[in-house]
């Protein structure tokens, strides 16, 4: 297992956003998370990538504990220096790209590898150019983010995450901020990564895409996992009433 999340609980004030969520992702697996707005999908990804701290439960990467629950039932994280190691296992692609506007495309891709991982500039550049070629935007290496279309920016963001050589990549609605005609190019590179057996968790509202690329689909609602299984099982033969109801909105 690359990541295991056990009995995750997360509250914002009185609102229980995640209630006892457990799931794991195997190496090479592609998992899609679907569910209505406010069901806690983003929060789950933010907990997995350490942007939010969990209130209870366990987070393991590569079988090692990043957070566990102590006797009093409170989540305890490893020391923040050690947490850096766990951060390097995971990458996150945001809905809003969040590229660094003052850096060129290439600099966006090499800055963290060089400054955070202390890799050599030459090696980082080589890796970055290779990734940009894969994303079909090698000619944009010297451009600045504002000069790119949304679809190109999101591909740069994916490349930036991959440049860190993570074990697993999380996507939070990677195409939701894009014009419909630009979603295809982003979904294409994610599909390509899936074929290369990159381990990925994708929160998405693109049902045909989720059905086509994922090994497993998780349906979340109200802070719990309502149903999960193969795409065929969840999309074609949903067992839970809540899932059927949700999927009906996407038919037509």
């Amino acid at each position: 297992m690359i990541i295991e999340m056990k009995n995750i609980r997360k509250q914002f004030g009185d609102l229980e956003v995640l209630q006892d969520i457990s799931f794991g992702v195997d190496s090479g697996e592609v998992v899609s998370i679907i569910g209505p707005s406010g069901s806690g999908k983003s929060t789950l990804l933010r907990c997995a990538t350490f942007l939010e701290t969990i209130d209870g439960g366990e987070i393991l990467y590569m079988g090692q504990h990043a957070a566990h629950t102590d006797a009093s039932g409170k989540a305890v994280y490893v020391h923040h220096k050690e947490l850096q190691k766990f951060r390097s296992y995971c990458g996150l692609v945001f809905q809003q790209f969040n590229l660094f506007p003052h850096y060129s495309v290439l600099k966006n891709l090499i800055d963290a590898p060089v400054e955070v991982q202390h890799r050599s500039k030459e090696e980082a550049e080589e890796t970055a150019m290779e990734l940009l070629r894969k994303m079909g935007i090698a000619d944009k290496a010297d451009a600045y983010p504002y000069q790119l279309s949304g679809g190109q920016q999101q591909r740069v963001a994916i490349a930036r995450a991959l440049a860190m050589k993570p074990e697993i990549l999380f996507f939070d609605e990677p195409t939701s901020a894009l014009d419909p005609e630009l979603t295809g190019e982003v979904l294409k590179v994610i599909r390509q990564l899936a074929e290369e057996k990159m381990t990925m968790v994708v929160v998405t509202h693109e049902m045909p895409f989720a059905k086509a690329v994922s090994n497993r689909v998780i349906f979340m609602a109200g802070g719990v996992i309502v149903e999960q299984g193969t795409p065929e099982a969840v999309f074609d033969n949903p067992k839970e009433e809540r899932t059927k109801q949700f999927l009906r909105v996407f038919e037509r």
Partner: peptide, 14 residues
């Protein structure tokens, strides 16, 4: 500054 800049940097390990 948009919070997304801090979050992107945090995830990258800065």
């Amino acid at each position: 500054m948009p919070v997304g800049q801090y979050e992107a940097a945090e995830v990258l390990g800065y």
